[in-house]
Design a protein around this nucleic acid. Sequence first.
DNA 1: ATTCTGACAGCAA
DNA 2: TTTGCTGCCAGAA
Length: 117
Amino acid sequence: MTRYGKKTADNDFFSMVYEVTKLIPYGRVTSYGAIARYLGSGRSARMVGWALNACHNMPDPVPAHRVVNRHGLLTGKHHFGNSTTMEQLLINEGIIIEDDAILNFKEKFWDPFSELG
DNA sequence: ATTCTGACAGCAA
DNA sequence: TTTGCTGCCAGAA
């Protein structure tokens, strides 16, 4: 899936990130690293975050609020306009947030490998 | 073209 | 244990 010039294809890393993110079920969350590994990039978790940073440029809504870091911390909350937006969205889905951390993170965690294969 | 930065993660001191 | 450095890859300056 060579990126000829620009990120045109639907097969580039960014689009893959969006697709996986859209597969996250309601009320569940996953981590940047998990997505990165699922996509085969291993340690390029930062790219996942970078991709999600551009997700608002996408035609379809991407539930980026369901992606947190490996500790379950809402490190990206500052990118949702208001610092409380991400938190609100998660709370809206029945996820409890305390001090920017997801409670029962392990239970809420959605692993692409386990769920998708 | 080169350098810096970034919504992370893993390992070393 | 806590801090901090490096690897990762793409985009912006």
